[in-house]
Design a protein around this nucleic acid. Structure first.
Lengths: 180, 180
DNA sequence: CTTTTTTAGTTAGGCTCCTAATCATAAGCA
DNA sequence: TGCTTATGATTAGGAGCCTAACTAAAAAAG
């Protein structure tokens, strides 16, 4: 990822050599990645201080079962699917979380292929201690945006998300003229 | 990263247990990360097909010296700084790029601590072949947004970027009341 | 009831990224 | 000049992510 975003004149200059380069689209794309990375990095620094990583944090969040209003996950397969990582990666994550005493792994009695993953008391204490600060920092990140601006932002991001889904669905070397 | 974003009611429910949780802020944050990841993933799939990764691609882009309107980089340290990775990581990236014949590494005659990194003919051919499709896909991602929406999006993202910088600058456990 | 297919989880090996430590060279200073 | 500090690059070791191959158990098919 580029640390310093190119100036717009720079994109215009590059567009002379590459007719396919859409300067405003490239600017949006680079700002999106840069902002996401910065926002993510600002919160991840605190995660690391708590001995967590994004993957570990996501797993712990999915294992919380009280007061979240959402169904919790329990098997490695479900955790992997909902975390957006492969099952192999989830095995590794659970390995280290178990090593650190934050989760426990028990065989499922009904289906002997499956394992049941649970938060330990230590894991539950850690995530519940961590969350309030995490939510405050998240709020601080978005703080200067009005409620209307937040709605607008989510709406615009959703459009790009939709395009990304379209683009990922047609992995061939298409995209010659325009995909809508 | 959560694969499926939580529904808004779910955030409202969770906010009952965590008073610090700002539902609209969390929604923005999660949408930002999810969108960035999806957009990035859509383009990265093509990078992988070309035998590249985001890190390798960024290095090659920084090494292009013609018609980009931007100064090119040449030393590992500068490549690392502008790529946003550590120098150790850059050493590894250049190792594999050199192994694959895409870049070459030569000692700097003036300062014998430094190395000079250059694109090989093969590397230059690869990146120049790759870029047009890359730019078309980038344009496709943003295609449904009008020019005004693009400006709005960049402006809103810039606000969050600014907050991320503030948040990263004060790594202590601050953020109790509000940071502006 | 046996064989095949599917599913859950893991292992093995690779890439990218990190931090910390090391080495050589250059630059600043008494 | 000689010593100390700063800088460029690398190495070593670790974590998280991937794909591909494997094991065991359940489900489906004959």
């Amino acid at each position: 990822m580029l640390k310093d975003l190119p100036r717009y004149e720079c994109l215009l200059e590059a567009a002379k050599q590459f007719p396919d380069l859409d300067p405003s689209a490239t600017e949006v794309y680079l700002h999106l990645l840069r902002t996401s990375d910065d926002a993510f990095g600002a919160l991840t620094a605190h995660l690391h201080r708590a001995g967590l990583s994004q993957g570990r944090f996501t797993v712990l969040m999915l294992l919380i079962d009280k007061g979240t209003g959402c169904a919790r996950a329990s098997t490695p397969a479900e955790l992997a699917d909902r975390s957006g990582v492969t099952r192999a990666t989830m095995t590794g994550l659970i390995d280290t979380l178990e090593r650190d005493g934050l989760v426990s792994r028990e065989p499922d009695l009904a289906d002997r292929r499956m394992m049941s993953v649970k938060l330990t008391a230590k894991g539950e204490a850690l995530i519940h201690d961590y969350l309030p600060g995490h939510f405050r920092r998240t709020a601080a990140l978005v703080e200067p945006l009005t409620e209307n601006e937040r709605k607008t932002l989510v709406k615009l991001l959703a459009k790009i998300m939709g395009q990304a889904a379209v683009l990922s669905a047609q992995p061939a070397d298409a995209v010659p003229a325009g995909i809508t």
